[in-house]
């Protein structure tokens, strides 16, 4: 097939993964990829979240036993890292809405950079909120 159109790059369906990876990716392409991956992660987490809270129906003891296991530092850190996924999907979602409804196509790259800066600030703020109790306890307050 490829020989029929000399000089024009044609899509080789058998090599679709390779073809897709070969595209030059700008910030928008990465945003698109990350938006999908984070979205899938979040809906997966929502299913898991409903499941993990189902012990609420079996009363106090069952619920608190389960919740204690989520309060260990590694899992609390994981919950903090989950906020990266939440933040990326949220801020990029806002960026998509602005592109669609507020002529954002003209400034979407600036928006992308700003959303990373805002995201990192909010991530650190959430870290402080989540761990302030431990931090204050560590300093004996």
């Amino acid at each position: 097939m490829a020989d029929e159109y000399k000089g024009i790059k044609t899509f080789d369906q058998k090599e679709w993964v390779k073809e897709n990876l070969s595209y030059k990716k700008d910030s928008g392409s990465w945003a698109w990829i990350f938006h999908r991956v984070t979205g899938l992660a979040l809906i997966g987490y929502l299913f898991l979240h409903v499941y993990s809270l189902s012990t609420l129906t079996s009363g106090r003891t069952a619920f608190e036993t389960k919740m204690q296991s989520f309060l260990s530092p590694p899992l609390l850190a994981l919950e903090w890292f989950l906020f990266i996924i939440v933040l990326f999907h949220s801020l990029n979602g806002v960026r998509i809405v602005l592109v669609d409804w507020a002529d954002g196509a003209k400034y979407h790259k600036t928006l992308y950079r700003f959303s990373w800066i805002i995201g990192i600030i909010l991530f650190l703020l959430m870290g402080y909120i989540m761990f302030s109790h431990e931090i204050l306890k560590f300093f004996g307050k």
């Binding site: 919740m67 989520f70 919950e79 959430m126 909120i129």
Partner: peptide, 13 residues
């Protein structure tokens, strides 16, 4: 924020 402003807020019955 509501679930994490205090360790107890999201983890106790």
């Amino acid at each position: 924020i509501l679930m994490h402003y205090h360790p107890d807020s999201g983890h106790t019955y």
